[in-house]
Structure formats: structure tokens, C-alpha cells
């Protein structure tokens, strides 16, 4: 299989917030797609995809035994629920924002 596919087609995710830091954990439905996740969700790729939103450091914690990664994105909530004017001040929908990313599939 090759070509581009959306992360949404191979993974599920959940978003949480603490202050102005968003964390999104992303899991491949099938373990064989875990390497794709790791390749797609690097700090560089994420910041390049959403430069106006992700204004701080991004850390990626790999969770190989669960076929997932935990992303921790600082200054990524437009000030957080204390200051954001976004309807979604908690960034609950950031999970689906990340799942909208496309990845290059090749195996």
C-alpha cells in the first residue's frame, strides 16, 4: 500500500488540557500502523502544520506497547481556558485537528 492517508483512518485520539498546555494521546487501531504514527507526529511536523496554533515546545512520548504516542504541546491553547477566546477554550477538539493530518503510507 502506498499513497497518502489521513491519520483519522488509522488512529484514534483524546485531548486534555492543563493551563495553556494541551496533551493529545493518539493510538493506532492496528499495531502495524504504529511506525506511521511515530513518523507523522514529530514536533517539527506538528509545528509546521499548525504554526499559528502551536506556539511553544512540543514533546512526543512514544508508547510502543500501546501502539500510541502522547503529545504534550505548550502554549497551544490560545492562552488556555483562563484567557482563550476560542469557543473551545479547553482544546477538546484538538484530537480531531491532529487526526486530520495526512501521512505518507508506504509498506
Amino acid at each position: 500500500m502506498s499513497g497518502r492517508l489521513r491519520l483519522y483512518d488509522i488512529a484514534h485520539a483524546r485531548a486534555g488540557d492543563k493551563g495553556d498546555t494541551s496533551n493529545v494521546c493518539v493510538f493506532a487501531y492496528e499495531p502495524k500502523h504504529y511506525p506511521l504514527l511515530v513518523r507523522a507526529l514529530t514536533p517539527e511536523r506538528l509545528r509546521a502544520a499548525f504554526p499559528a496554533l502551536l506556539r511553544g515546545p512540543v514533546r512526543v512520548f512514544p508508547l510502543p506497547q500501546l501502539s500510541g504516542v502522547n503529545l504534550v504541546m505548550e502554549n497551544a491553547l490560545e492562552g488556555g481556558v483562563n484567557a482563550s477566546l476560542n469557543l473551545d477554550g479547553h482544546g477538546k477538539s484538538w484530537s480531531f485537528l491532529l487526526l486530520s493530518l495526512e501521512v505518507e503510507a508506504e509498506d
Binding site: 485520539a13 483524546r14 492543563k18 494521546c25 514533546r59 512520548f61 508508547l63 500501546l66 500510541g68 502522547n70
Partner: peptide, 16 residues
């Protein structure tokens, strides 16, 4: 396993 995995890292930063 999926509902538990998603909640395991909900609002968790460094999993260690």
C-alpha cells in the same frame, strides 16, 4: 482496551 487507553493518558504529560 481502547476506552481505557484513551483515558490512561487523559491530562497526563510525561507518562513516566
Amino acid at each position: 482496551a481502547r476506552t481505557v487507553k484513551e483515558q490512561l493518558f487523559y491530562e497526563v504529560h510525561d507518562p513516566a
